[in-house]
Each structure stands twice: as C-alpha cells, then as structure tokens.
C-alpha cells in the first residue's frame, strides 16, 4: 500500500536540486534517521543526475510506502533514453561513459535498502529504490 505519490520532471540541473529537496522533505516526514536521510538524498541526487545526463531527461516519482512492519520511501527514476547495454559493467565501481567518477549507479545502490533496475537498449531505463526506517 502506498500514498502521497509526488512526481517531478528531471530535465534540467535545477530539477536535480528539486528532487533532492523533495526526497529530503519526505525522508524527514517518514522519520528516517539523519544518516539514512543523508544516504537516501545522496543516492537520489546520483540517480537524478544519471536520468538527466545519460537518459536525456525523465521523471522522478517519490512515494511513501509501508509494509506490515515499517514505513519507508520509494523513488522511481524513469527515462526513455538509450538504455544500458551492459548492466554488470554499468554497476561496476569506477566505470563511466560520461566522464564522471563512475560511482553514481554503484554508489547509489550501496546507499539504499532495495535497488531494482529495468533497462532495454533503445527504450530507456527505470530504476526503483527503497529506503526503510530502522
């Protein structure tokens, strides 16, 4: 079950800042610890930038989620860009095609509790992450 779904476009640098701010607000509302808030906002920043730079822009969807034991936040990043041809390689620390540090995808995965990626060359990429309250 989920509620409070909020969507933001990820088309400009400024949108990446807006995604960070929205995720921070929801993380505080869900009562994530300060370290977990920081980890989730950092992961969201990496993934939003990927959506913009590699996906050619897209959308972020932030929602509060619950299971029977705890609350959390789910963020979905979706683009209709070129997709990722070699996922294992893209998830390797230090691998980059964009001149960055190659830590965005692999680092973001370490900062969240659940990480799912769906990608198809030519069709786009959707990444879903969840962080649960402890």
């Amino acid at each position: 079950m989920n509620d409070d779904v909020q969507r933001l476009p990820v088309v400009t640098d400024q949108d990446v800042v807006r995604v960070r701010q929205l995720v921070r607000t929801v993380a505080v509302a869900v009562k994530l610890s300060l370290v977990d808030q920081t980890k989730l906002v950092t992961a969201a920043s990496e993934l939003a930038r990927n959506t913009l730079v590699y996906g050619g822009g897209g959308e972020a969807e932030v929602s509060r989620v619950h299971n029977d034991r705890r609350a959390g936040i789910r963020i979905v990043f979706a683009d209709q860009g070129p997709g990722i041809a070699d996922l294992d390689l893209a998830l390797t620390d230090g691998y980059t095609t964009g001149g960055g540090l190659g830590l965005g995808l692999s680092g973001a995965r370490r900062l969240v509790d659940e990480f799912e990626i769906e990608t198809e060359p030519g069709k786009g990429t959707t990444i879903t992450v969840v962080k649960w309250c402890r």
Binding site: V35, T38, K39, T42, L101, L103, G107, R110, L111
Partner: peptide, 9 residues
C-alpha cells in the same frame, strides 16, 4: 562523511 565513504568517495 559516513555517506561519502559508503558511496565510494
């Protein structure tokens, strides 16, 4: 600091 190190930086 904690997040940066976990991120790999």
């Amino acid at each position: 600091a904690i997040t940066l190190v976990e991120l790999g930086l």
